[in-house]
């Protein structure tokens, strides 16, 4: 399943030296297009307004760290970070536990309706959960979980199930189940087999599932927009969007807040790009 990321010693097309240089230059240009927007907000975050307007391409003349202090407090980023961290972490923990249990059963045991159950779960891959927001909103409202971190966490766990079960089950399917068979003959309970044998076995896939879900929950804007109106419960994207509406022409502060909002994910990505890429691209398609 992860073959292409492990075995990168492939050689597909052989190019002449000149073509290689052209391809290289094209990739440099592409990289510039990707990186310029980030560079722009970083530079703006150290400038004041008139520098941004009058010298958009020049580097900042001095590092105005006061922008960071101001943007941090005015955009409610402290609260935003805390909420995003709580919601993302608990969602990921919940998803890991219940999805690995489900995947374990689907992969290791044979029972009636097994295929139907699997189809039922992966059907969720093909329907964007946000389309069903109206009943989600009403349901959470009726049980008093509107404007609540717990409500969001439960929702994210539920919507994270299809992808996570799918990925973990397929990972497990590729590992032979002989250890489990002999453990069962020795009288081990399913719970023991799951904890002692299968969980350690699927660790690499659990890391991928954790990262993919963490990022998608951390980045989500749609559900908080509809389910959260209390400013003490807002997540990072929601906090920035409120700030964006209020300080529309304070570009130095907007840029700083945007930069502060994207930088944690970029740092994690810098260290774990392999896991990011493997999870996010293999989940959906082959």
């Amino acid at each position: 399943m992860y073959v292409w990321l492990k075995g990168e010693e492939f050689k597909m097309l052989k190019l002449s030296k000149r073509s290689k240089i052209i391809v290289f230059i094209l990739f440099i240009l592409y990289s510039i297009i990707v990186l310029v927007p980030f560079l722009n907000i970083v530079m703006n975050s150290f400038k004041n307004l008139s520098e941004i307007f009058l010298a958009p391409f020049s580097p900042p003349t001095q590092l105005r760290w006061e922008n960071y202090r101001e943007a941090w407090s005015k955009a409610n980023l402290g609260i935003g970070y805390l909420n995003s961290l709580i919601i993302s972490s608990f969602s990921v923990i919940g998803i890991l536990i219940i999805s690995s249990m489900m995947a374990f059963i689907l992969s290791r045991y044979r029972f009636p309706l097994r295929r139907a159950l699997y189809l039922y779960i992966i059907a969720g891959l093909a329907f964007p959960a946000r389309l069903a927001i109206i009943p989600i909103f009403l349901m959470l409202r009726d049980v008093g979980l509107l404007n609540s971190r717990l409500g969001l966490i439960l929702l994210y766990i539920g919507t994270g199930v299809p992808f996570s079960v799918f990925l973990l089950k397929n990972f497990l399917d590729e590992v032979p189940g002989e250890l489990e068979e002999s453990a069962q003959i020795d009288g081990a309970s399913p719970w023991t087999i799951f904890r002692k044998i299968d969980l350690p076995l699927i660790k690499p896939a659990l890391v991928v599932v954790a990262i993919v879900n963490f990022v998608s929950v951390w980045n989500d804007f749609f559900f908080p927009l509809i389910l959260i109106s209390d400013r003490s419960k807002e997540t990072i994207p929601l906090a920035v969007s409120v700030f964006y509406g209020e300080y529309a022409n304070q570009w130095h502060l907007l840029s700083t807040a945007l930069w502060l909002a994207v930088v944690p994910i970029m740092v994690i990505y810098a260290f774990m790009s392999r896991e990011f890429i493997s999870g996010m691209t293999q989940g959906a398609v082959k």
């Binding site: 597909m12 990707v34 994207p237 970029m266 990505y269 790009s273 996010m280």
Partner: peptide
Amino acid sequence: LATQIKGYHIFRSIVYLPNVISMVL
């Protein structure tokens, strides 16, 4: 990318970078 250009790993990471940023941001 499949021509195994110099800097393949870095280019691969940069190409994918925008995907990890929140859509609304």
